[in-house]
């Protein structure tokens, strides 16, 4: 899996209320949710994000609520992947379960400025900053998570197991 895109940078402890405020949780429609993606962190984000863009964030991205609407709206907004120094654990699980690629790499976060062009080689965990000509390693994806990705997400994984 490989992605190339322009980056948007966010700070530490971006919580799920900032990613998708509860006032919009009376729907589960991904497109409707995407229209408010990251709104309370950057009100303009839903307008300026383009398909393929990459979110870069400091530590503890996605802390707070268990709402899967958070990774769903990021994915539906067209964001190809999220790179952060660390992720809150429910957000981490949810992202794998719904198929939003996420990578942990403190070095990459420090070495990327907003607007830089970045290429991500997910399989090998390498992040290339094309604007600056640098590259970074990300923390390896645990083998079980890789299995989930290969199966096409948790639901496919469980369906296969229960129906076999």
């Amino acid at each position: 899996m490989e992605f190339k895109g322009r980056t948007w940078k966010f700070g530490a402890d971006v919580d799920t209320d900032a990613i998708i405020p509860a006032r919009y949780l009376n729907t589960t429609d991904p497109a409707e949710l995407a229209a408010h993606c990251m709104e309370d962190a950057d009100p303009d984000f839903p307008n300026k994000v383009k398909s393929g863009d990459i979110i870069i964030a400091e530590k503890n991205f996605g802390c707070g609520s268990s709402r899967e609407h958070a990774p769903i709206c990021i994915k539906a907004a067209g964001v190809s992947c999220v790179i952060a120094k660390s992720f809150a654990r429910i957000f981490y699980r949810n992202s794998f379960n719904i198929g939003l690629p996420i990578l942990e790499s403190p070095e990459a976060v420090d070495g990327i400025d907003e607007g830089d062009e970045v290429r991500v080689d997910v399989d090998n965990g390498i992040i290339y900053n094309l604007t600056k000509g640098t590259s970074f390693k990300s923390t390896a994806i645990p083998p079980f998570m890789q299995e989930l990705i290969d199966a096409g997400g948790l639901i496919n994984f469980v369906r296969r197991r229960l129906n076999s």
Binding site: S66, R67, E68, P71, I90, R93, N94, N97, I98, G153, L154, I155, F157, V158, R161, L162
Partner: peptide, 14 residues
């Protein structure tokens, strides 16, 4: 512990 909706779905089944 808290999880997301997809984990809940899988757990309701299995």
């Amino acid at each position: 512990t808290g999880v997301g909706s997809t984990d809940m779905a899988a757990a309701m089944a299995s």
